[in-house]
Design a binder for these strands. Structure first.
Lengths: 340, 340
DNA sequence: CTGTTAGCGCCTTCAT
DNA sequence: ATGAAGGCGCTAACAG
């Protein structure tokens, strides 16, 4: 019958008490047992529950957390979202999604979302803001945490991509490989519109591992292109058609590693007998396919980032924190010593 | 310097005009050019933008759309979310996520989310409400659309699972198979806590295809268990160890089909020479792996559902709509005629 | 302990 | 065309 949901006033009237009791009832301070009972009864009877919209305005809080990420461009981002959601679901914050597929949309989000009347806190996944954006975040006074992204002035949880890719390349070296190719995401615009910073880090890790093993860096061993299995396959084709073709390939991501494996198959090369392949990320299918890779704990990064944000929500802090998550070598079936 | 964001009053004062102009300015009705200019200037100067929280209360709209789904339990759900997000991003609705991993959480969401002061509209993915829940949705007056879920009284976009699985089984029959196993999600509690309804539909499609080809249904050819690759692998083991082992297996989902393929490999059976395998869903990896399967357009279901909701938001309708999306047979490398 | 009052920031009448 | 006033439903500060 009634469809206009009951208001706090109706409850008060119905309970025959003053307007206060109800509002105060939220976190039981000092209300007499009798009043409390009456109010409870009225609430139940009217099926009342406070308008969150009104609360928001009154409390000057949105009770909302925003998350900005290029979710659907790569499986890894969803995995991170999963960690975030798990934490936020246990609070009474709403989690609102801002998906980013283009630099324009990213800029729009960076501009419009960090506002006190939109979100109480903000999580940004895998998008590193430039200085101007960072200033805006800071200036907005909306607590902001970067996950898998970085900026000096902002709180963040990151993974040590340099160490991780050193781990990968070192594994290949330990197996006896000397000819190690690297296939990566494009390092420069326009093919890397989001300028994911880990590309440079992983490249650096590759270089360092080579260096410290005294293996010369061969520039033509590094191929880069748009991040996709298809393109990676093509790049691997090129690499594997070289006169001095590598005996092992380190791929920037598992997705690209799959492309490399395809290329090997195309050329009749067996993995890992003829060619070792190692990826990065350890997305879900990687275990299934038996891909040797570097695990970064995607799910955990979401958990940690969300928790960090919640802490900042209760206790605003001035110092900038960085949490670094470890990587781990997952040896599976795509790496082996080089052919004799 | 200022961090207390400017209010509409500040703008009015700053512009030296009455409180109205600004609010009215939203959708330019009748304001004099001079006022409009002054207001615009003031807005720019103060970096004013209206508090959405206040607007919500005043407009009695939340400007928010909720989506309830078991997102992270299966890749297919994320794909649907992607379609939804694409549509909603073009509006100025916020999209808030309610992830469901347990029946308790589902019930809590079904109870608490459909409220006019929380969301303006609601999308529910792959969870079919029972009658009580449906009544609550209706009673809440929050426009609600089911995607890949069903209830008589609610608007929905579904896929014809019966037809789809008939398609799958018919394909096997056309290839000459007579011994066709079916591995499915558990049809009953407690292993199918969400009671995904399509399980029954796909089972029915399997039966019908068999019937109309005059092939007897062999109850021991139907194995069911918790939805996972691991369990499916185990079930396939059982099926393939039968004295009259099937020459083809139809799996309820691609994920389970992968388990079946693993089992075949375990037993030294070649797919598709010794065993044909067909899945359902056509998730992203399926193409990569070359799995023959039934495609249901996951992404489109999100698009269609979200658009349907938006229409209902502008034009509330009384009649209940159902949109049925087609399925499509994707023939790839895991099906072939039975061994001679 | 209880009831009343005054905002939160916007939008929408209603006079002017 | 413009300004003023009242209210959305709640919370918080205050007086009784």
């Amino acid at each position: 019958m009634s469809m206009n949901t009951a208001t706090i006033r109706d409850v008060a009237k119905h309970a025959g008490v003053g307007g206060n009791g109800i509002s105060v009832l939220n976190e039981s301070p000092d209300v007499s047992e009798s009043t409390r009972q009456k109010v409870q009864a009225a609430i139940a009877e009217l099926d009342f529950s406070p308008s969150v919209v009104a609360r928001r305005l009154s409390l000057r809080k949105t009770l909302t957390i925003g998350i900005i990420a290029p979710f659907f461009t790569r499986p890894a981002f969803v995995e991170r979202l999963r960690g975030v959601e798990k934490v936020i679901a246990q609070t009474n914050y709403d989690l609102v999604l801002f998906n980013v597929e283009t630099p324009e949309r990213r800029d729009a989000c960076f501009r419009d979302v960090p506002r006190k009347d939109r979100v109480d806190g903000l999580l940004i996944v895998s998008l590193s803001p430039d200085d101007a954006a960072a200033v805006r975040f800071l200036h907005s006074h909306v607590p902001t945490i970067l996950i898998d992204a970085s900026h000096q002035a902002l709180n963040r949880v990151i993974v040590d991509n340099i160490a991780g890719s050193q781990l990968a390349v070192q594994h290949l070296i330990d197996l006896g490989h000397q000819y190690i190719g690297f296939i990566s995401d494009a390092m420069e615009n326009p093919f890397n519109p989001f300028r994911f910073s880990h590309i440079h880090d992983r490249y650096q890790g590759y270089r360092q591992a080579l260096d410290s093993a005294g293996i010369p860096f061969r520039p033509h061993y590094h191929k880069q292109g748009i991040h996709s299995r298809r393109v990676a396959r093509q790049l691997a084709h090129e690499l594997l058609s070289l006169p001095d073709r590598p005996t092992a390939i380190f791929a920037y991501s598992d997705t690209q590693a799959f492309g490399v494996i395809e290329a090997a198959n195309d050329l009749g090369l067996n993995v890992p007998q003829d060619l070792s392949v190692i990826g990065f990320d350890d997305i879900e299918v990687s275990e299934y396919v038996g891909l040797t890779t570097i695990r970064q704990n995607l799910f955990d990064s979401g958990i940690v980032g969300a928790n960090m944000l919640l802490e900042h929500l209760v206790t605003p802090m001035d110092i900038v924190q960085q949490i670094t998550l470890p990587t781990e070598l997952m040896i599976r079936q795509t790496t082996a010593p080089p052919p004799a």
